[in-house]
Design a protein around this nucleic acid. Structure first.
Lengths: 339, 339
DNA sequence: TCCGCATCTGGGAGCGCTCCCAGAACCCGC
DNA sequence: GCGGGTTCTGGGAGCGCTCCCAGATGCGGA
């Protein structure tokens, strides 16, 4: 009765129905691409929509329907401080590209240790249809927790525990395996590694690749120092390695950001790169090309990672069957000056 | 009557009301921070919310209310490829921190040249209450366009044209002014600059600061080469400068990412840093600390930038009056090895 | 005492859709 | 002709909130 409250601009579905000469229900069916609508009605509705410039109200659809028409991108706060900076834009570009043209909102959340409870409540509270979780820390419980509540989730990066949500990751193992094979093909004989932390899958997978590469040539796999994805810790690790094996002739560093620290130490000690010591990094971040000498490194396609995660999630939401549980994306060696 | 349809999980406002012993209306008032609620009721409601783990349904609030309870963070696709990577995480952390505890969704959009129309339509179509636009390209029309439609907008980074949306930016001018004064205090007498592109406010502001710093000591301001925020173009610019003034003794580079290129050229030509040539960068990105030698640079607080933008937008949405049209955030000089 | 105003509260009508239901229209084979 | 299906359609009850309204209560001044 009362017409007091200010209404939003634009036509409602009711007006479309009137103009098209059908009922609300039929308009709704057309909009949602359901079957059981005659060609005649469909055309009429499309014409009415175009005529009125109608666009359905997102909130109303979400409220009335059984889906939220939105997905969340959850990024671990912690990770974002360390590794994620270079990832960030890439992942997001990928997600966005894959979302283009679909009527799905992208909600952004950062995963702070503090608000774990709230976040789970929010995510499983029907506000989103699914979640992409980018958490570099392999032991982050979020993907698993969400997965167990039944919310469709795709994890970016392999969770350490396994058995939880499906994940998409770069093929870290084969990437570093390739790097080591390359170093061996160069004739290097004493190949060390600066590995990532033990509690990150990305660190462990890259370490495994290095081990495997050496093992298949019967070479010893004892020159390992763990580090934590910062330049300074990379430098410390390099010092440690040189102390243990001053005559090493190659280092595979599990991340470019650690490699720059290692480079610094090697140069300070008078080692020529790559003549005395060959260095190979991982990631192909901007640091790799700006380092002196420019870093030979294993490239991972972060944008593709974002795309693939999104594709996998949307496919699941679309009810697709027999989706791959998890996926690894290929990496490639980028040769520059350091090896 | 019929209880056929599957309801979303979680408690409704009605249950909170029952547990708190008040009405729906009162719960709603508490949630929305309205006045005219007794302290007693407020407490009871808060307790009930905590007890039940209630989180309001976003779609319902949006549908019923006059606001969308969401803001958009629009990031220029273009920018994200160049400068934004280091910004990205920082801005987002800031935005997120400022949003904490408020029931405002953060929608992420990338601003591709292609979908300008759609994007404006979407943003002004009532899906969001306001927008944060991070566009490093000063001539991006989006902030202005949105602002003119009446949508509250805050631009991150000063738009070149001016007169449009309010903006928040680092104080690029004073940052570079400080850098130049510092170089002069070191006794440097022939101070060049590698500036950013002419079509980015960030580039022009940093150039102005350099000019001003030299001018106040009566020094010539002709050693300028424009470049485009990549290491390679920084290197080219450095070569050009050395051609014009082989005896320069300092360079202010308007971004760390260009500075690494400049460093490379200087070292290749046999200049000692900082003895022969002092180099100061801008941003204090990760590149600054990993460069050899580590880069003396002007630090800007990107996280604070994100926070401030968000604060400004929310304040406007909250109906606050007499807000500053635009704001500049202080920068600080970080001394490392290059100057 | 009584009125006015500020403070507080609950009831209930929507917001614009989706989706269930019931039923109409039409086709097929027996 | 009749039962059984498939295709199509409209009506209308919600989805979970907000916000208007009307009413209750308390306090101060005339």
């Amino acid at each position: 009765m009362t017409e007091g409250r200010s209404r939003r601009p634009g036509p409602r579905i009711e007006e479309v129905a009137r103009v098209a000469g059908v009922s609300k229900s039929t308009v709704s069916r057309v909009i949602n691409g359901e079957k059981y609508v005659s060609e005649r009605s469909r055309q009429a509705v499309h014409r009415a929509i175009a005529l009125l410039g109608y666009s359905p109200n997102h909130a109303a659809r979400t409220l009335a329907g059984s889906k939220a028409n939105a997905i969340a991108l959850v990024i671990s706060e912690q990770g974002s401080r360390v590794l994620a900076d270079p990832f960030f834009a890439g992942i997001l570009r990928g997600v966005h590209a894959e979302l283009a043209g679909r009527h799905v909102q992208l909600l952004l959340m950062m995963n702070q240790p503090l608000d774990g409870e709230d976040q789970v409540a929010y995510l499983t509270g029907g506000h989103v249809d699914g979640a992409l979780v980018v958490s570099l820390h392999g032991e982050d419980p979020l993907p698993r927790t969400l997965h167990e509540t039944g919310l469709p989730v795709v994890s970016g990066g392999r969770p350490l525990a396994g058995g939880g949500a499906p994940f998409v990751d770069s093929d870290n193992f084969n990437g570093s395996l390739g790097a080591v094979r390359f170093l061996i093909s160069l004739g290097r004989e004493k190949i060390a590694t600066i590995a990532g932390p033990r509690d990150m899958a990305v660190g462990m997978d890259r370490l495994s690749g290095w081990r495997c590469g050496l093992a298949e040539h019967g070479m010893p796999v004892d020159l390992v120092v763990h580090s934590d994805f910062t330049p300074d810790s990379g430098a410390l690790a390099m010092e440690e390695l040189l102390r243990r094996a001053p005559d090493l002739d190659a280092v595979f560093v599990a991340a470019d950001i650690m490699a720059v620290g290692a480079l610094r130490v090697l140069q300070a000690r008078g080692y020529r790169i790559p003549d005395d010591v060959a260095v190979v990094g991982f990631d192909d971040s901007v640091l790799a090309s700006t380092a002196t000498p420019p870093l030979t490194t294993v490239r991972q396609d972060v944008e593709q990672l974002g795309r693939t995660m999104t594709w996998r999630l949307l496919a699941e939401l679309g009810g697709e069957e027999k989706l791959p549980q998890s996926m690894l994306l290929p990496t490639s060696l980028v040769r520059r000056g350091s090896a």
